[in-house]
Design a protein around this nucleic acid. Structure first.
Lengths: 383, 383
DNA sequence: ACAACCGATGTTATCGACAACATCCTAGAT
DNA sequence: ATCTAGGATGTTGTCGATAACATCGGTTGT
């Protein structure tokens, strides 16, 4: 258990003035480069930093202009005389001005926060999605307000939505979605754009957009080419649309090749559930290929199969989905489908920003799924 | 790749009025229970919900009182005549009022957001810490503004800190900390309480507070009792204080038993680095026990050792730290030390809240580390 | 040469909530 | 019956920023 070391931050003098006022404003080109140049030996900034935060009024007074002129400068307005501009810049730096985003968004009605509701962020998938989203948001000048649902608390969704609707956000995102969350989301009246990032279940405009639609056939093809004919799927929890999609696309892929599914087992994404799915069976299905809906369940399933005396891949092949970082070091290393979680998070943020009206975001290109062949899959045994 | 399904939220009538206005205010006792009672058949609220959000002025007008009376009610002021109170409650519900937290914090100078700066949230540890923090924050009525550092971007820390300092936050947290981050954090002048949640390196008041201080001796004792005498440590990146602590406590634990470390290898927390640490060695050290600083590196090391012909645990024992969910399903299942990541996150939030002045938080009890013995450790081979 | 005009800047109102102070009304004291 | 204390409520100012409008000095057109 880590202990918590506190760093009490008084108004310590900022060694490196952050020049945060320049962050979101269209700034003169030469500003960008010179962040570390001001080596102020404890003077100047000290006085200003000590008390309360400087406002545009303070800056205005220091520069001998009106607060509005300061505001104009900050917002990138062009028509300011060079000498005036000079004085404002100077005052800004001297006082170490930082915009008060609260006041800004109160007046402008715009905020730079995105609410992100997510399930089980401690799972690998969701956490990577959140990371991608967080980084994309930061790059666009937003921060992500993360509300992670505690699945042990039945009222969590309600509470979280109540929390989210109060804060004023630029938009709301649902990441890593279960049906429950989708429903609660749809029933809530947000006053801002809201998006649910989920594997769509209908017929999507761009089928590349669904990992399982394109990826599962690749997995099945790989196994079929190795001679496998009898398959078992270890599915995720059916309240996750991602889990349902994988079941559907698994069956479709088999069907289109005239192969058969020997059975579908159910897990909850965890390695433990993959292990139980196999080990609790009275008898292991007569299949040669096991396709788990994610790598963790594949890991658990592999252990259970080995304990039952199956050799992998000599007797049975096991494949997963996601290509988590550890999959290459399972024993045997796992054949799987690479899933670009970070990309999903980015894409979700970009989609939301586009709807928010931020036109500067580039449309996301959807990376194609990638089949990663390792040693957990091999030729089907001859009977 | 998931596709993103948008749910365009207009001002749909809220099926279940969230009564969010009651969330943070000391409310009359009977309010708590009656959330779903108002079955308003599309009347009343409709008009108000359609346009912009209702303000206390709108509510005041609807109730025929002054906005201040509404404000008083919301803040739990007692001296309001029952009939007036009644009208206010009615108007509040009819309009589906939600407080504008932006305006509130502008005036009150207080916010209910906590900024959390974290590294590599996609690692298992950090993501679980963040989850614990997020849940604890939500329970206390705060949300976590997560800023995840993109390690590929050298200016990420600066950018992130600039971003954080602008937003108005109740406090700032650094989770899963590297030295770089600690330094940048210390050099920044926040205007609010800031805490760095890290394994402390000095002599802590409560030694139970450090996982490795208590836990590594347990691991070493376990292995020593099995007859192991020659140990190798696979360390984390040295810029993480957690990694340094583990090295230090590993050495101390060996020393106190008169045992010797045959070597310290270095990884980066990933399974790949654990694999490389062993596989790239010209010759595997003559040791019987390998102690990795986390489970992922243990996984990689196990694979490399097996590939080099070592049997686990017959020839060598391998143990990890953290007890991630998958560790029980490695082959062999990994002996490790349970690490309460979520608890760390909670603790960090509680500590911060305490400093913020929120007196309602209970002090955290620090769970003792737990040795989890599985099959990757066994009796040392007889030479 | 006078007015319309324009760029640069200042003044005032505004966002939504909270807070200080002002006011009104009623009940108890004299 | 009049005064007063005090509870209940209304009015105005404030937080820090943005927006609309006003103003000032100097051009430019005719």
């Amino acid at each position: 258990m880590l202990s918590i070391t506190s760093v009490v931050k008084g108004q310590i003098n900022p060694e490196r003035p952050l020049k945060a006022w320049a962050t979101n404003a269209p700034r003169p080109a030469d500003e960008r480069t010179a962040v570390n140049t001001r080596a102020d030996p404890l003077g100047g900034g000290g006085a200003a930093t000590r008390g309360k935060a400087a406002t545009i009024y303070d800056v205005a007074q220091a520069a001998g202009v009106s607060h509005q002129t300061v505001s104009r400068f900050l917002r990138g307005f062009e028509g300011i005389r060079p000498e005036t501009r000079e004085r404002v810049v100077q005052a800004l730096e001297d006082l170490g001005y930082r915009p008060n985003l609260t006041a800004r968004s109160l007046k402008s009605g715009r905020s730079h926060r995105i609410g992100a509701l997510t399930h089980e962020i401690s799972l690998v998938g969701p956490s990577r999605i959140v990371e991608g989203a967080s980084i994309a948001a930061r790059e666009a000048g937003y921060v992500l307000d993360i509300v992670s649902l505690d699945s042990s608390n039945p009222r969590a969704i309600e509470d979280s939505l109540a929390l989210i609707t109060q804060h004023d956000l630029a938009g709301v995102l649902a990441l890593a979605v279960t049906d429950e969350m989708t429903r609660a989301f749809a029933a809530t009246a947000f006053r801002v754009p809201a998006y649910v990032a989920a594997e769509s279940e209908g017929v999507p405009a761009d089928p590349r957009g669904i990992l399982s639609r394109v990826g599962l056939p690749m997995l099945v093809a790989h196994l079929a080419e190795l001679g496998h004919r009898r398959f078992v799927h270890i599915a995720g929890p059916s309240m996750w649309s991602a889990a349902r999609n994988r079941v559907r696309d698994y069956e479709a892929a088999l069907h289109s090749r005239g192969l058969q599914s020997v059975g579908i087992l159910h897990g909850d994404w965890s390695a433990a559930s993959g292990y139980r799915a196999i080990s609790e069976l009275a008898q292991v299905p007569d299949a040669t290929a096991f396709l788990a809906a994610n790598d963790q369940m594949a890991l658990g399933a592999m252990l259970a199969l080995k304990e039952r005396g199956f050799r992998i891949p000599a007797d049975v092949s096991v494949v997963g989905v996601d290509d988590i970082a550890e999959a290459a070091f399972f024993d045997p290393p796992l054949t799987t489908l690479r899933n670009d979680f970070e990309g999903q998070g980015r894409a979700a943020v970009f989609q939301l920003l586009a709807r928010i009206g931020n036109t500067e975001v580039a449309p996301m290109s959807v990376p194609a799924p990638l089949l990663v062949i390792r040693r957990s899959s091999g030729p089907a045994p001859q009977r």
